[in-house]
């Protein structure tokens, strides 16, 4: 049971990091970033190469940083001019971006899946109540939760976090109060892209690095974002861990149904509580 709980936490923490990035950029900028999965996939491939050539730890620092810079530039160079457009146009543009990223990955790395060993000192297993458990998964849990707490603290306690929260409630009033909301949007895009980078690097030693990994996880991350409530970091955290638990429990007890459980959960939550666990969607 303890192992299954840890499995749920490990999977849920990865979902949480991805869902946070999606929720942030959607929340402030109204950007349905369907390229989020492609960024995650690109980061995993980059982590694979950097880890093989230099070090996983270097990848964990540099890949999210570079992606954050890319996010900042993409917002300043593209999203900023598109915000007034119909959301479907923006969503389609991000989907087009995802196709571009996917093709770049195919050109650079080819189509064969890659696998990366867990980095030292987390390349072994530890005993949990007598059963072996991969120490890298424990690292993923701790690191992901630390990142999530860091983001939450930034939003709650920093001046910029205050501006972000204010702008999310009323963008115009925040701008009238003298806050540079364009810059705010760019920073949020940078954080969102950076989180995709963190998740991509973390997953490389955890699962297979493959071309379609982004599309697969994006759907689940969207479910986490929706179930959690599009405006809440706490809701996203609860939804991610709960979905991880449900998935793992389903794998063990209802294997034939486990693939459907995320969708069933989303339907039930949206029927019972249409705003998600802690969301505040305007209607």
């Amino acid at each position: 049971m303890a192992i299954q709980l840890l499995n749920a936490l490990a999977y849920g923490s990865l979902l949480l990091i991805l869902a946070l990035g999606l929720a942030m950029i959607f929340g402030l900028g109204g950007v349905f970033n369907f390229g989020h999965g492609a960024l995650y996939m690109f980061s995993a491939y980059t982590a694979y190469s950097l880890s093989s050539a230099v070090s996983f730890w270097l990848a964990l620092v540099t890949v999210p940083a570079v992606l954050a810079l890319v996010g900042y530039l993409v917002d300043r160079g593209a999203f900023r001019f598109l915000r007034s457009r119909d959301p479907i146009e923006l969503a389609i543009i991000t989907y087009g971006g995802a196709l571009v990223v996917e093709n770049i990955v195919v050109m650079v790395w080819g189509t064969q899946p890659r696998a990366l060993d867990a980095p030292a000192p987390f390349n072994g297993s530890v005993s949990v109540l007598g059963d072996p458990y991969p120490s890298y998964r424990l690292f993923v849990i701790v690191f992901s939760l630390a990142v999530a707490i860091g983001i939450a603290s930034w939003l709650r306690y920093s001046k910029m976090g205050l501006h972000v929260r204010a702008a999310s409630r009323d963008l115009r009033m925040t701008a009238v109060a003298g806050v540079d909301t364009d810059r705010l949007n760019a920073v949020v895009a940078a954080v969102s892209f950076g989180l995709a980078g963190v998740a991509g690097v973390l997953v490389a030693p955890y699962a297979t690095v493959s071309i379609d990994m982004g599309a697969r996880i994006l759907v689940i991350a969207l479910i986490v974002t929706t179930v959690g409530g599009l405006g809440s970091i706490g809701g996203a955290a609860i939804a991610a861990i709960a979905l991880g638990l449900i998935q793992v429990t389903g794998d063990v007890n209802l294997p034939g149904w486990s693939a459907l459980t995320p969708y069933v959960v989303m339907i039930v939550v949206l029927i019972v509580h249409p705003r998600g666990i802690a969301g505040r969607i305007e209607t």
Partner: peptide, 10 residues
């Protein structure tokens, strides 16, 4: 801890 993320404007 449950700070609100930016709220959707849509």
């Amino acid at each position: 801890m449950n700070p609100q993320l930016p709220r959707p404007q849509l």
